[in-house]
Design a protein around this nucleic acid. Structure first.
Lengths: 365, 365
DNA sequence: CTGAAAGCGCTTACAG
DNA sequence: CTGAAAGCGCTTACAG
């Protein structure tokens, strides 16, 4: 099918040098004469040289292959954008990244032999709940395999010491979102948050208490949702929309930290006859490009994906290269409010701000 | 972070044998005394041995890692089920499989260094159009890297010789679907097919000509669609629904080889006020479990995923292990009609068959 | 500034 | 039936 792959030896022969020199030249070792480095580079290009990842990995004990593990990767636009950003950060450090979708035992069968087989130089666990037993098992596997890892996206059930954590402050996100909505005059705000992230509720309550406004029955206005299978997205959204609309008094805004539901929920609310943003303001999290194309475009509070990925990759690479002695490291990536039109913004279509209009339409789901 | 990985040497020491013997024992070489094999197996288990993929790959020149490349992997339920099935087939042969989502140049940047770096023992190109220049470039890259590959899902623009192809007969799928619909009494049938797969139209026409029924303006009733970005799915579906419903005479059935659109299209048709299956029958392709949970459950014509994956992995592994001399191989995987309720089947809710009812409802999209 | 040599963890002819 | 040895393609002390 094809020519044998070109190796260091081929280059060495072509350039009349030893394999060791070629190896050093290629990695830009300044001990090697500049002229030599040049010559080697040219020869390598001419032969289309690409280092054999396996040989390199064996020799250095660093495969330079990182795994980004999360559940429902590729399902969520946010995860996919993260993967792309991780990739960018990894490449800058001459690492590769492979996205592994590992959810509740599923996908593990696929990656475990590779993990144990020394494939990965490090793994980043993204957006897992370490309260979940399955996830704990997974992390134990990784630990047993002797693979360095970082936990990105935090988790409350994780002790701080002994872990490398790139943290997103969920409570702060909720606080920012709710304060924004309170400032716009909303008083009854529903929240659709992941079951496993109680921090959002803390932030929600904190925002109210910061303003001295009364917080009406938070136990009802906060709607926790579990893991949603891809196929069940619209169905869940419809149910949630129903729940939101049946609250009394009817909320005028909804904060959706369960970001995967934001689009579907918006769709369902519109189908239910609501005019957005007038009848219902919306804020979500995990900002992605797609929010701009939704109607109305979604306001969100989110980490900057690139900044976040950068922090995660940097921490991971430091851990890998620093060896066992790397002190455990906690980084918190800040969250910012990104205002679009879903709360009635100035952008594009006038400022709706405080004047919420009553709607008399029949709501049909 | 963790104990050094256990190696063959560790087992050898524990069992009081040489590394070579341990290596052979572990792969079940019958030359090795059964008692020895046993002892080695026990020792390996006790130490939690897992062979280092890199060392093995280096030594055998076969990394045993396969790549399944397709665009929009994980986006489509079908692709994901395929990945799972490939995985199963691969594992039976002691291979691993990694899913790579590579679309129009995108994702390539990520996988190319790994590909060139000798990571993959083989790659399966799934459901690509080799008429596309980008795809040709990709295949050339793979070829230059000296990596064996198979083309699964066929392509008309591919010459047969010199390729290993696992083929799906698109024309036959269309013929089966349309014949099914014609038999049920439908006379005006819309088709939503991928732009890049003209074979579907051939099958469509053939079904009509087999029955001597007149085929009304196929150039209008066949609606070609291009690549649809994930975010644009519902929008596209809405547009397509509109197009279908504006055809005159209004079709009573639609065949959707662009399978990713089937669910969304069904949803839109329902939202447009149609009663399914009475007002519109539907057949699609790429059968997945999810079809069973849709309302009404979707009839489809499809290859059996496991059979298909098995054929693909088998062909690929033969090519890898057979070396350059493997004769080019073409396998066609048969397609079957899977009848559910979306054409008004006997299952569950009575037989609607020939009596199509007129509907007087307003159609709102 | 460059090269010879050992080693990463495995496999596989080749001896015995 | 088992072992010593070479080799896969790279990296990296260690000499010179």
């Amino acid at each position: 099918m094809a020519h044998r792959k070109t190796t260091l030896k081929d280059i060495a022969e072509l350039a009349g040098l030893s394999v060791s020199t070629v190896s050093r030249a290629l990695k830009g070792d300044t001990e090697i004469a500049l002229a030599t480095r040049d010559r080697v580079g040219k020869a390598a290009d001419r032969l289309g040289y690409q280092p054999n990842v396996f040989a390199r990995g064996l020799s250095t004990q660093n495969t330079r292959i990182l795994a980004l593990m999360t559940q429902g990767l590729h399902f969520s636009a946010f995860y996919r954008q993260c993967l792309a950003a991780f990739e960018k950060s990894a490449h800058e450090r001459d690492y590769y990244i492979l996205g592994c979708s590992v959810a509740q035992g599923h996908g593990l069968r696929e990656y475990l032999p590779l993990l144990r087989g020394g494939m990965f130089a490090g793994v980043s666990f993204m957006d897992y709940s370490f309260g979940d037993v399955q996830v704990l098992d997974l992390s134990r596997e990784v630990e047993n395999a002797g693979v360095p890892y970082v936990v990105t996206y935090d988790d409350p059930s994780l002790p701080e010491d002994g872990y490398h954590i790139v943290r997103v402050d969920f409570a702060d996100q909720a606080r920012q979102a709710i304060e924004h909505l309170l400032k716009l005059g909303h008083r009854h705000i529903a929240m659709v948050a992941p079951w496993s992230r109680p921090q959002f509720l803390n932030g929600y309550l904190q925002a109210y208490s910061n303003t001295d406004l009364p917080c009406h029955r938070p136990e009802l206005y906060n709607i926790p949702v579990g893991l949603i299978p891809e196929e069940g997205l619209m169905d869940s959204a419809r149910k949630i929309a129903e729940e939101v609309l049946n609250l009394s008094p009817r909320p005028t805004a909804v904060f959706v930290p369960k970001a995967i539901m934001a689009g579907p929920l918006q769709f369902c609310l519109k189908r239910a006859g609501l005019r957005l943003p007038d009848d219902m303001a919306m804020v979500t999290t995990k900002d992605v490009r797609d929010y701009e194309y939704l109607d109305p475009p979604l306001t969100s509070v989110s980490v900057d994906i690139q900044e976040f990925s950068e922090a995660s990759v940097e921490t991971l690479v430091k851990t890998i290269e620093g060896g066992n002695e790397t002190p455990s490291r906690i980084v918190t990536v800040p969250s910012h409010l990104i205002i679009r039109e879903s709360c009635g913004s100035a952008t594009g279509r006038g400022w709706h701000g405080l004047e919420r209009r009553k709607h008399g339409k029949e709501v049909v789901l």
